[in-house]
C-alpha cells in the first residue's frame, strides 16, 4: 500500500505540468474563440473563418506546408540513405543536426544577408553574368529557408529507420531477383515508411503555423494562418478571431497526427 501511495505522488508533477501547460492553454484558446473584440459572447468568429479571405489563407498555409514538407522529404531521404552508408555516420549526422541548435531568428537574419540585393547569392549570379535579381521577399526564398530550417528534423527519423533496417532484407530482395530500384521500392521504402511519417509530422505541423519567416523572408507576401494569428493578437488585438484560427490549426494538427500515426498491422 505504502509504495502504491508513493507512486501516485511521483505522478503529481507530471499531471500538474500537463494541466497548466497543455490542457489549460487549449481550453483558454477555445474559450477566447467565442468572444468578439468588445468581449461579447458570439459565434461570428467561426462564421468569419468560413469567408473566402480566411479560407484562402488556410489553403495557402496548407499549400506552403505541403511544399516545404515534400521538398524536405525529397532531399532528406537520399541524404539519410547516403549517411547510413558512410563510415562515420554518427559524426556526419551530428554535423547536419548542429545548425538546428542555432536560433531560428539568427538563421533568418543570416538569409536576409545572403539573399539581399548586395548579398552572396546575387554576387555569385553577377559572376556568371546574370543581373541582380529580387530573391528576398519571394515565394522561392520563403520555401528555401523553411526547407533549410526543417530539413534536420526530416533527416533524423528517416536516418534512424534506415539505420535499423536489417541488411538481410536487402540481401533477400536481391536474392529473389530484385534490381536496386525494385529493392528500394518494394522493400527499403515500405520498411522505413515509419521514419518518413514521423519526419513529415515533425515538419508539416510547425510549417503550417510558421509566422516569423513569412514576414522576414517572404516580406508578408505569404500570409499563412500562423501570420494571421500573430496579426490578430499583436496588431488588431482581436484575440477572439486569433483564437478561432488557432482552434482550427489545432484540429488540423490532430487530424494530421491521426493520419500519420503508425497503424498496427494484422490486429
Amino acid at each position: 500500500m505504502q509504495t502504491k501511495h508513493y507512486q501516485k505522488l511521483y505522478m503529481v508533477p507530471y499531471f500538474l505540468w500537463i494541466i497548466v501547460f497543455v490542457v489549460a492553454p487549449l481550453l483558454l484558446v477555445l474559450y477566447y474563440s467565442f468572444f468578439d473584440v468588445e468581449g461579447h459572447f458570439t459565434f461570428t468568429n467561426y462564421q468569419k473563418f468560413f469567408t473566402p479571405v480566411y479560407l484562402k489563407m488556410t489553403f495557402s498555409s496548407f499549400w506552403y506546408a505541403f511544399l516545404i514538407t515534400l521538398i524536405a522529404l525529397i532531399i532528406a531521404y537520399p541524404v539519410a540513405y547516403l549517411l547510413t552508408k558512410t563510415k562515420h555516420k554518427q559524426l556526419w549526422l551530428l554535423l547536419i543536426i548542429v545548425p538546428s541548435w542555432v536560433n531560428l531568428l539568427l538563421k533568418a537574419y543570416a538569409f536576409i544577408g545572403i539573399f539581399g540585393q548586395y548579398g552572396l547569392a546575387n554576387g555569385l549570379l553577377g559572376l556568371v553574368g546574370i543581373a541582380p535579381k529580387q530573391i528576398l521577399f519571394t515565394d522561392f526564398s520563403f520555401v528555401f529557408v523553411a526547407v533549410y530550417i526543417f530539413i534536420p528534423f526530416m533527416i533524423l527519423p528517416i536516418f534512424n529507420a534506415l539505420n535499423e533496417l536489417n541488411d538481410t532484407y536487402i540481401d533477400a530482395a536481391k536474392d529473389l531477383g530484385a534490381s536496386k530500384w525494385t529493392t528500394f521500392r518494394r522493400v527499403i521504402f515500405p520498411l522505413t515508411i515509419g521514419g518518413v511519417k514521423s519526419g513529415c509530422q515533425i515538419v508539416f505541423i510547425p510549417a503550417l503555423s510558421l509566422f516569423m519567416l513569412t514576414r522576414l523572408i517572404a516580406g508578408s507576401r505569404v500570409i499563412t494562418l500562423g501570420t494571421a494569428i500573430e496579426q490578430h493578437f499583436l496588431v488588431t488585438q482581436d484575440w477572439g478571431m486569433g483564437s478561432t484560427i488557432a482552434v482550427f490549426l489545432i484540429i488540423a494538427m490532430f487530424i494530421i497526427m491521426a493520419f500519420t500515426a503508425d497503424r498496427k498491422r494484422g490486429a
Binding site: 538481410t168 540481401d171 533477400a172 536474392d175
Partner: peptide, 19 residues
C-alpha cells in the same frame, strides 16, 4: 550480381519481409 543468378537462399533468420 545476385539478382541475375538462378539461386535462392533460405536465410538463417529467414529474412521474411515484415510488411
Amino acid at each position: 550480381p545476385a539478382n541475375k543468378r538462378q539461386v535462392n537462399t533460405v536465410f538463417q533468420d529467414y529474412a521474411l519481409f515484415p510488411h
